[in-house]
């Protein structure tokens, strides 16, 4: 089958079918009544809610922790204080990722060229990896915030070994994950194991799509 036969085959069938399409007028009118909507519309509310909730958490956390640092540092439980400070610090970083995502959502132009738009959308989705990395990084502080100074005196060796085992293993694992959860490792088995499942499908599809976009961009550069 040559080129013109191929094009003719596609067009004649589509032309016949096209004639039979009737677009419901009521449907068109309904669409024109939808005032605010975008392809990323569903992403906005949850991100804005998370951002507002996160800002509140960080503001309240900062006020409470600052007052402890300033007025009652010597009497405070240092394990709790430092663990909570790390947690609030990491949440602040995560908020910047959310802020970047919200700004990008507003900047995406669906009428822009396919490769440019899909690159932006894929990168936006893949930036979720940053949030995952930061969330993992918070894990060790949840194993230390409840420690206190009396533990140093009262605990036996076995209790310490058990507690330290958890904290050290968590720390090593999350630091490793922090440096390794990245786009470049998308084809590794452990990566696909972590991001397996329905909820991660859009992320994995975005990674796959970004591969295609990068491939096209490389070819553009070389031609």
């Amino acid at each position: 089958m040559n080129d013109s036969e191929l094009i003719k085959l596609w067009q004649t069938t589509n032309d016949k079918l096209e004639e039979s399409i009737v677009i419901n007028r009521e449907n068109i009118e309904e669409i024109t009544r939808v005032k605010v909507y975008s392809i990323l519309g569903s992403m906005k509310p949850i991100k804005i809610f998370t951002l507002i909730f996160g800002i509140l958490w960080v503001v309240i956390g900062t006020i409470v922790l600052s007052s402890i640092y300033l007025y009652s540092f010597s009497e405070s439980n240092k394990f709790f204080l430092f663990s909570a400070s790390i947690q609030v610090g990491l949440t602040t970083i995560a908020l910047f990722v959310y802020l970047y995502q919200i700004i990008t959502i507003f900047q995406v132009d669906i009428s822009d060229s396919v490769i440019k738009t899909q690159e932006k959308l894929s990168k936006l989705k893949i930036s979720t990896l940053w949030v995952t990395r930061i969330l993992f990084l918070q894990l060790p502080v949840w194993t230390t915030f409840w420690w206190n100074e009396t533990m140093l005196l009262d605990w036996g060796i076995l209790q310490w070994v058990f507690t330290m085992f958890f904290t050290i293993s968590f720390t090593v694992i999350v630091i490793w994950l922090f440096f390794n959860i990245k786009y470049e490792n998308r084809n590794k088995k452990w990566f696909q194991l972590i991001f397996r499942g329905k909820e991660w499908t859009p992320l994995m599809n975005s990674i796959e799509l970004l591969d295609q976009v990068e491939f096209y961009k490389d070819q553009n550069a070389s031609t």
């Binding site: 392809i39 669906i110 009428s111 822009d112 060229s113 396919v114 738009t117 899909q118 959308l121 894929s122 989705k125 499908t201 859009p202 599809n205 975005s206 799509l209």
Partner: peptide, 20 residues
């Protein structure tokens, strides 16, 4: 050109949301 860009961008994003 304007319509093809929008339709293709929507179609690709539609796919990304649900590969099943």
């Amino acid at each position: 050109t304007f319509l093809y860009r929008i339709s293709l961008n929507v179609a690709i994003s539609f796919y990304r949301k649900n590969s099943t």
